[in-house]
Amino acid sequence: MHLHKFEKIWLIFGIAMLAVFLGIVGVQAFTQGQTPAGGMEKIDPEKVDVTAPFDDPGVHQIDEDTYEVVIKAMAYGYEPSEIKVPAGKEIIFKVTSKDVIHSFTIPNTKVNMMVVPGQVNEKRYTFKEPGTFLILCNEYCGTGHHFMHTEIEVVEE
C-alpha cells in the first residue's frame, strides 16, 4: 500500500492536530477537574422525596468556599424553584429526576447536565459574576417541555 508523500504529511498533520485537541481537553479535564457533568451515585426514582439529600432540596453551605445545591427535576419544573447562591464560591449541583429524562441547563455557564431517573448527576461550577441566570430543560420531556424553566440568582459574596 503506497502513500503519496504529501498524503503522509497531511495525515501526520491531521493526526497531530487531533492529538493536540485530545491532549488539551484530557489534561484540563483530569488535572483541573474540568470533567463534564457525571457521577456514579444511584437512587430509587420512586423514592426521591425521602432519599437524602433530595429529602431536603435547596442550597446548603458545605464549608467556607463550597455550597451544595440539591435539585429535583420533574415534568415540568424544578424543586426548589428559588435558588440563591454566592458568586466566587464553588457550587456543587446535584440533580435527579422524579419521572422522565430532563436536563438542568444554565445557558452561558458550563452547567449543562442530563437528569436521568435512577441516577444522581453532579457538576461543580463557580459563578464569576452576580446576576440572574436562566435554568432550562433542553431534553424533550413531554408536551409542556418548553415551559420547564426556573432561575438562579447569583449574589455578591
Partner: peptide, 19 residues
C-alpha cells in the same frame, strides 16, 4: 458525555476512539 452512570474513564476512552 454530560450524564451520570458512566465513569469519566470510559467516556474519555470513547472520546479517544471517536477521534
Amino acid at each position: 458525555l454530560t450524564e451520570p452512570g458512566v465513569a469519566d474513564f470510559w467516556k474519555f476512552l470513547q472520546v479517544t476512539l471517536t477521534f
